[in-house]
Design a protein around this nucleic acid. Structure first.
Length: 212
DNA sequence: TACCAGGAGAAAA
DNA sequence: TTTTCTCATGGT
């Protein structure tokens, strides 16, 4: 059980330190979904190169992408790493996406069912599904990643070894179902994780991670 | 030169 | 069921 006040205090510290992050960095919901798969265990700088390649090849939409062979897609997304497995995953995902009738049809599906459908796609795990739900479908789903675990473990608000669903449930129970809040919160956690602080001098990093 | 990055799934134990 | 292995480029 996490206290709402503690979560809001951490959020305000993050926002004061870093300001609005303007997530997700993409032009369309489909681009969000592609980015969510490509960024699995991968630095975003590499994902940007892959997305630029897709854009320049005119393949940043579902119909164009699904017409590519796995080898062609792999070559375009090479800079994002794991390009063979990610090409399979993207083709799996796009096939499912088109089969479901695309974004407009899926928008009519309620959140628990849509989450189940996403998780049934090979290559879409809990974090990728929740990135897509929050940032492409604007559903109030709190994304849990390694940075979230690390920050809130350091703050003493969680044990750190809880499973994914337990943590997501804890955050969503403590907070109102607020899409803009979840959007900014996760983005700020990622932004904060990139802050270097070797010596715990006075800095943004330490002001955020100070005892509550 | 090592090590890490907006994870997920298959294989092994 | 839980742990370990595999996937791979680019920046620090």
């Amino acid at each position: 059980m996490i206290r709402k006040n503690a979560l809001l205090t951490v959020y305000h510290r993050l926002f004061e330190a870093y300001g609005p992050q303007h997530w997700w960095p993409a032009r369309t919901p489909f681009e969000v979904m592609v980015g969510a798969v490509l960024t699995q265990n991968t630095a975003w700088t590499n994902v940007k190169r892959a997305i630029l390649n897709l854009e320049q090849a005119g393949c940043l939409d579902a119909l164009s992408m699904v017409s590519l062979t796995q080898e062609q897609l792999a070559e375009l997304i090479r800079p994002s790493g794991y390009f063979n497995i990610k090409a399979k995953r993207l083709l799996n995902f796009v096939a499912w996406y088109l089969e479901c009738g695309g974004h407009k049809n899926l928008e009519a599906t309620d959140t628990p069912e849509l989450r189940g459908l996403l998780l049934a796609v090979n290559g879409v795990g809990p974090e990728t599904a929740d990135d897509i739900l929050l940032y492409a479908f604007e559903r109030p789903v709190f994304v849990i990643d390694v940075y979230t675990r690390r920050l809130f473990t350091r703050l003493g608000l969680i044990g750190g070894d809880e499973d994914y669903e337990t943590l997501r449930g804890a955050f969503e129970s403590a907070l109102d179902r607020d899409v803009p809040l979840y959007n900014e919160y996760h983005a700020l956690i990622v932004r904060h994780a990139k802050e270097k602080c070797a010596w715990h001098q006075d800095c943004h990093h330490c002001r955020v991670e100070a005892p509550l």
